[in-house]
């Protein structure tokens, strides 16, 4: 992992270069006062990213800017990661349509299995599923009835 060029950093920087350039270009359609910051920051972002691509091509690699969560070996548990992301995206898109309660219950059940690493006896599995159900009900009631946040009910509930 320590050898070679910072390929991921270069890919990221190309993305940022494109974002910066696009922001810079779009600023010309704005009124002068609203354009001031996008133009400056867009240009700065594009230049910094271009500089990084240049430096990384020549072999520079610094440390990752990271604190807290560590990004380890990404190949490990790739399937689980994808299930998690797909569940989160599906959850976020579907809950206004289908309803907070039902989608949350389904998503939490999927995530429970995603986070399960050992084999469980049917009894323990039932307890865990019960805990997930209780969790969803508790939070739902807390939000809906105690904090007066209108939860989307959608088609189902």
């Amino acid at each position: 992992m320590n050898a070679g060029r910072d390929i991921a950093g270069i890919v990221g920087s190309v993305f940022f270069f494109l974002v910066g350039a696009a922001v810079f270009a779009m600023s010309f359609e704005m009124t002068p006062l609203a354009a001031m910051f996008p133009r400056t920051v867009g240009a700065a972002l594009a230049l910094l990213a271009a500089f990084y691509v240049f430096a990384a091509m020549r072999g520079y690699r610094g440390e990752a800017v990271e604190n807290g969560s560590t990004v380890g070996d990404q190949a490990e548990g790739l399937g689980r990661r994808i299930v998690l992301l797909a569940t989160m995206i599906g959850w976020a898109l579907l809950f206004p349509v289908i309803g907070m309660f039902v989608t949350s219950l389904a998503a939490c059940a999927i995530l429970m299995f995603t986070g399960l690493f050992e084999r469980l006896s049917p009894g323990r599995l039932a307890i865990q599923l019960g805990a997930v159900l209780a969790l969803v009900i508790c939070f739902y009631l807390l939000m809906n009835s105690v904090l007066n946040i209108p939860m989307p009910r959608g088609i189902l509930f």
């Binding site: 998690l84 959850w91 976020a92 939490c108 995530l111 986070g115 969790l135 939000m143």
Partner: peptide, 23 residues
């Protein structure tokens, strides 16, 4: 973990919804 993951995930969804009741 099998309970922590749904718990945290549910908090993120419900919590970010709760800010402005906005999907």
């Amino acid at each position: 973990k099998s309970l922590l993951v749904p718990l945290i995930a549910f908090m993120t969804v419900v919590g970010s919804f709760a800010i402005h009741s906005n999907p």
